[in-house]
Design a protein around this nucleic acid. Structure first.
Lengths: 235, 235
DNA sequence: CGCAGGATGTTTACGCCGTCAACATGATGA
DNA sequence: TCATCATGTTGACGGCGTAAACATCCTGCG
């Protein structure tokens, strides 16, 4: 009770409790976002398994159960990080595209390559966030009953129709418009493309490509992307 | 090897602990395998996260710490399940091939398709085991320091040069021999192929393909495999 | 045959986790 | 002003992985 005024003192060095000045405030003021930021750091360092409710609360300097005022539980917190990771992914994919834009005009094929390069680059640069972005177990909006019963409420699937998938879809449509892909081969093409980049990212993160240098990996990525594009555009 | 109950029987009337008999034997007799079997069930039902040391011990009817006489820890137990899952995967890949053999002669292309079909079929039929088979965190032989420091002792990488990868490699070699893939495109081809099947399996397990029927999924798989093979074999 | 010693299993305990219930604090609006 | 309610806190529970100490049984050696 009164003795814990000492505990009120200070815990997390990097996190001020409130945006402003006063330190020992009982109410944080922006706890939800602070917890998300902390969880993002955890995820970036250790992947989804490292997104531990108590650790995030500790980082912010707040009791573990305080998080329950802002999240349904750790699955919900994880979901917030997941969303952030997905945003970062599309940002990376778009950034690669913009970088190329500056150099000169690009073909549709170029743009597809860029999407793939951006995807893999993000997976390599932020493996923890990437893994978290595609982590099952993470409350989306409502769902997930006890015992894995797929609640599957109305509304949205986890995260496959996010912007990153849209980017791919749009570019494939452009490829059809440009005559690079025949309309008959168009349906399902995003599956092949997506499976490829996702698969090669996994080879980098968990597989035999983990030790490659940037240069080597960029060669491998281009090779793999070339293969799948050749397949999609064949005849 | 399923009938190895109580290989140890001396005079005790009771049979195995798990086989419904009277428990009372202090020593189990085949605890290591019993734990692995239990852990396999757990993995099959709930994936790698469900491989819980205490749960496996409970299933076998033994104290939690008994497992430490046979495994270094839960990572080691998980590793055993992982190995089993990998074996099941290659069994499935080979089974699809054998099934086709019976029907008639196959081309190299056929055999590559079969490998992919078998791979995805296993992922669909045994998602928990599949996920466990490709689960990071699982002691291989020695490694894995504290704190994710990749011990990377000498010897073997986790599991990428297992038989399943070999199957793919051999078949790709055959494709080169048959003139379907040019020697210049051969190096790195397994990466494309592996990334593709791994990626499409993920689309089934965690992605938008999870709800497809067998027929639909088989169509999608063939489509995706056709794409990558076309890419690999294009000029 | 008898018994020491190692192999195997049990109990207890520690610290971590997610989560719930009860309580404390303080911002806010009637 | 002061009751209310959102926001944090403490405490507790059960489950987890794991270590240490103890118990039981098998086995090989005399």
């Amino acid at each position: 009770m009164e003795a814990n005024s000492a505990a009120r003192g200070r815990t997390a060095p990097g996190e001020t409790r409130a945006s402003g000045g006063k330190e020992g405030r009982y109410h944080h003021g922006d706890l939800r976002n602070a917890l998300i930021r902390a969880a993002i750091e955890l995820a970036a360092e250790g992947g989804p398994d490292a997104v531990v409710l108590r650790a995030a609360a500790r980082k912010v300097g707040v009791s573990a159960t305080a998080a329950y005022r802002h999240f349904e539980g750790q699955g919900d917190l994880l979901g917030a990080v997941k969303e952030y990771g997905q945003q970062r992914l599309v940002a990376c994919m778009e950034a690669v595209g913009r970088a190329s834009e500056d150099v000169g005009p690009r073909t549709v094929t170029d743009r597809m390559m860029e999407l793939g390069r951006g995807y893999v680059r993000f997976a390599r640069e932020e493996p923890g966030l990437y893994r978290t972005a595609f982590c099952r177990k993470a409350l989306g909006a409502v769902g997930l009953t006890e015992e894995g019963g797929l609640a599957d409420v109305e509304g949205e699937q986890p995260g496959w129709e996010t912007r990153s998938f849209e980017l791919l879809t749009e570019t494939l449509d452009d490829a059809v418009a440009a005559g690079l892909i025949t309309p008959e081969r168009r349906p399902g093409a995003e599956l092949s493309a997506w499976a490829m980049v996702h698969g090669v990212a996994m080879l980098f993160l968990d597989g035999p490509l983990g030790t490659l240098t940037d240069e080597e990996s960029s060669y491998v990525v281009d090779r793999v992307l070339t293969d799948i594009l050749a397949g999609l555009m064949s005849s």
